[in-house]
């Protein structure tokens, strides 16, 4: 009986420790704020002055929440920082072609590159688009386009409050 009690104690404590570790790993992966953002901004500053817009707007597609967190405009590129929180654990990462960017005249800004950190619970990354050049834009539009799913977000450029 005493041996059984000891075994139950070992099992119980192992569950607590292992489950605790897994939950901490899950929470860090999901909620750790802005991994590597400062390094990213430093890299962007090589282009010249960086205008930073806190967008923080989201939309839902198929149960996933896609958040457009920040937009950076440099003399040579526009960079979107996004986060995709999955409604169901374990699906595919968000396709980097899903988010298209248009200037205020409706011209598509071509995506040059992308980078993302993915986990079973979602992904977070940066999409790099061609620069605005000398054109004056009052807003940009980000458009989600995949198969028959569409969603549009206007990103105004004039609000000083959003600019940093």
């Amino acid at each position: 009986m005493r041996q059984l009690t000891k075994l139950a104690t070992v099992v119980r404590r192992m569950i607590i420790v292992l489950a605790g570790i897994m939950l901490v790993m899950w929470a860090v992966d999901r909620y750790w704020p802005d991994k590597g953002i400062k390094e990213y901004i430093r890299l962007l500053e090589k282009d010249g002055p960086v205008t930073h817009y806190d967008v923080d707007r989201s939309f839902k597609i198929d149960g996933d929440t896609i958040i457009v967190k920040t937009m950076y405009i440099t003399p040579t590129q526009v960079v979107i920082h996004y986060k995709d929180i999955k409604g169901d654990v374990g699906g595919w990462s968000l396709s980097n072609n899903a988010l298209k960017l248009f200037d205020s005249k409706g011209k598509e800004l071509m995506q040059r590159s992308s980078s993302a950190h993915s986990s079973p619970w979602g992904d977070e990354g940066f999409l790099h688009y061609e620069g605005l050049g000398n054109t004056i834009n009052s807003s940009l539009t980000i458009r989600f386009e995949l198969f028959d799913r569409n969603f549009e977000l206007a990103l105004p450029l004039g609000k000083e409050d959003d600019r940093r």
């Binding site: 104690t9 119980r12 607590i16 489950a19 939950l23 899950w26 654990v89 374990g90 079973p120």
Partner: peptide
């Protein structure tokens, strides 16, 4: 012992609920 069992079951339930 009772508290530890409650914690163990609660953690397992959380893992299941969060699909970890």
């Amino acid at each position: 012992t009772l508290c530890e069992w409650v914690a163990a079951v609660a953690l397992l339930f959380l893992l299941f609920k969060l699909e970890v």
